[in-house]
Simulated assay, not measured.
Amino acid sequence: MDGTTARSGPGRVVVGIDGSPSAHTAVMWAATEAALRGSTLCLVHAADTDAPVPFLSEAEIVRSRRAGRELLERTTEVITARHPELAVVQELADGPAPDSLRRAAAMTGTIVVGHRGLGGFSSLLLGSVGLEVAAAAVTPVVVVRGAAEPVEAGAVLAAVRDEADVGCARAAAREALLRKVSLRLLHIWNVGPAIGPRAASRDGGDGDARPHVRVLSSVSDRIREEFPNLTVQAEGQKGHSVPGALVDASHHADLLVIGGRRSPGYLGPTLGRITLTLVQHAHCPVELIPRQGPGHGSTS
């Protein structure tokens, strides 16, 4: 077991729509992803009419549901025009968006969300729905960041922290094969300011790269063995900020794939310090692969 949630096959791609520009970008990304996989695209609009909103009349509930159905129909027409062979299903949910998306994805789907919704969030920050979905993910979640029509970089980037990230690297390899691009495995270790010899020993020392080379070689060797037709580049870096280095590297990636970890004091089983930084600041879409088993207590 490598600690990553197993996937028996390509489940359907589930994406939430709310009429915002960010959601539209996410929908178009999700449609392309579903077409590449040969899977179904599920559009979910959460009317949230079950919420105990004061003074919400029956007529207002009816109007809300009608508007949701119209949004689903318009979106389907746009997608079908671009991907005529893609199977698209629609779900108009009465409950809150995070629950509706998780229910639609079940245990095998991939959830896609935009980086912000209709609320008053900064364009750099993840909206509340995306934050809740990413934090409690049990299936892969993609937060679509970057330009609406991104320039293809020709590579999928996978962040590798330790040997348990082979499952994350495997998911990234599949994405690279779908896109017919190379896979870049990036292992970054922190070399923060050391205070005295104990700190240097604890951090492994700025000059001792051997443990990190072993980690990267272990993961890259397995991926090359499993995906012999894929071009795999493995790179190790040391720096003062692991999330900062990954954000910089995302400038040159079509997709960044990272394994989610549980970190006490952060936002849920998948979203820790590093993953939170990436879904808020990366320059390309970020795919979070939920982690289970040993290693789930680290700080990524």
Score class of each variant (00 low, 15 high):
D254P: 07
G293A: 13
Y266R: 12
G265E: 04
H240I: 13
V286K: 10
R273G: 12
A282E: 09
I258G: 00
S250T: 05
H252D: 15
E287I: 09
Q280H: 15
G268P: 07
G268N: 07
I274V: 15
V247R: 12
L246W: 03
R273K: 12
L256S: 05
T277F: 00
A253S: 08
P285N: 13
I274R: 02
H281Y: 13
G260L: 04
G272F: 06
T275F: 00
P269I: 04
S250Y: 04
L255T: 01
P243E: 08
Y266Q: 08
I289V: 15
L276Q: 13
I274F: 01
C284Y: 08
H281V: 00
P269S: 13
G272I: 09
R273W: 03
H240F: 12
L246C: 10
H240Q: 15
T277R: 13
T270W: 01
L288S: 11
L255R: 04
G272N: 03
P290D: 13
S250N: 07
I289M: 14
E287T: 14
E287G: 04
R273M: 08
E287H: 06
H240V: 15
H251L: 10
L267Y: 13
H251W: 07
H281S: 14
T275N: 15
T270N: 11
G265I: 06
C284G: 11
H240E: 14
Y266A: 02
H281W: 01
V257L: 02
V279D: 07
L288Q: 07
L255W: 03
H281G: 01
G293Y: 14
D248Y: 00
V279L: 11
G259M: 03
G272R: 04
V242T: 12
P285W: 07
V257K: 05
L246E: 04
V286F: 11
